[in-house]
């Protein structure tokens, strides 16, 4: 199923385009999802004020599940009109995976023993984790990716003072850094986890999560541009994040300052080389602008 070619950045960007759209305008309905996904953002979503909802996220969670608990978090595709997409994890999975993540991963890493010990904590059986599917460990890693991404908004609002004074690119840098710091408790196990997610069967999940993370960061940074660079910016950020994340697994510096410097350097380069980066994704941009023009001709205000 998985094509290794899908790992590259434009693959990541393309995946975003295939995600459900937020469009409510009938005019856009007849277009392929990839077009409406692009154009729908400014129509329905970009908040003129910083989002205030993220803090309320924990209140909507079921009381029985322990924090940090990302189930039922808000929208992923930045729609204010559609309900958030359902969690890709059922309640039974969330309970088991959360227990593994909080109690056993720091010691045992992203491994089957972590899951088995979590099952025992919950008075389940050694065999129980096998209900998670063909690769319970990959499911556990996916759960970490999902929870860290969906808790980013509340992390951002905790740092709203810092963020509000920054430019868009400053915000992107800080938000990316906040996400990287979420790997701190599990950093000595993360390289192994990345290896698991690089297996062909797991690549689609990993790429999709990465793309959604880049999208989340741009959303939280309040980036309003809807031009061909929409894709390339996200693709570039995906690539930079992935590189920084890997860099961090070998970073022994105090407070991972080397990783932060690495991140800054890469973001700066991307900005300076913006034109070059754009040409990499030129065909995407071309297709997108063609789509935007079609939509404009249909009366969509873009």
């Amino acid at each position: 199923m998985a094509s290794p070619a899908a790992v590259n950045c434009s693959g990541a960007a393309r995946r975003i385009l295939l995600l459900p759209t937020t469009t409510t305008q009938p005019a856009t309905r007849s277009f392929p999802g990839r077009l409406s996904a692009v154009t729908s953002r400014p129509i329905t979503t970009l908040p003129s004020t910083p989002r205030t909802k993220s803090k309320s996220t924990p209140k909507t969670q079921p009381p029985t599940t322990p924090p940090p608990q990302p189930l039922q978090t808000r929208r992923t595709y930045h729609s204010t009109t559609h309900p958030p997409p359902p969690s890709p994890f059922t309640q039974a999975e969330t309970t088991l995976l959360t227990s593994a993540l909080t109690s056993h991963i720091p010691t045992h890493g992203f491994t089957l023993p972590s899951l088995t010990l979590a099952a025992r904590d919950l008075s389940l059986l050694d065999i129980s984790p096998s209900f998670l599917g063909p690769s319970p460990v990959a499911r556990l890693i996916h759960f970490h990716l999902y929870t860290t991404r969906t808790t980013l908004p509340s992390l951002a609002s905790q740092h709203s003072d810092l963020l509000s004074g920054l430019s868009v690119s400053g915000k992107i840098e800080l938000l990316t850094w906040l996400r990287l710091k979420q790997n701190e408790p599990i950093i000595q196990h993360w390289q192994q986890a990345l290896a698991v997610m690089a297996q062909p069967s797991q690549v689609p999940v990993a790429v999709r999560e990465l793309a959604m993370l880049a999208d989340e960061i741009y959303y939280l940074a309040g980036d309003k541009s809807v031009d061909p660079s929409w894709y390339t910016k996200r693709a570039a950020l995906s690539g930079i994040y992935a590189a920084a994340e890997l860099f961090m697994t070998t970073d022994k510096s105090e407070g991972f300052q080397e990783t932060r410097r690495f991140l800054r350097r890469r973001l700066q380069e991307a900005e300076e080389l913006g034109g070059a980066v754009r040409s990499v994704g030129e065909w995407v941009g071309f297709t997108a602008s063609a789509g935007v023009n079609v939509l404009r001709s249909k009366g969509v205000r873009i």
Partner: peptide, 9 residues
């Protein structure tokens, strides 16, 4: 209880 990953492979 099944996985949110569809529940089958």
């Amino acid at each position: 209880r099944v996985s949110g990953d569809g529940g089958w492979e």
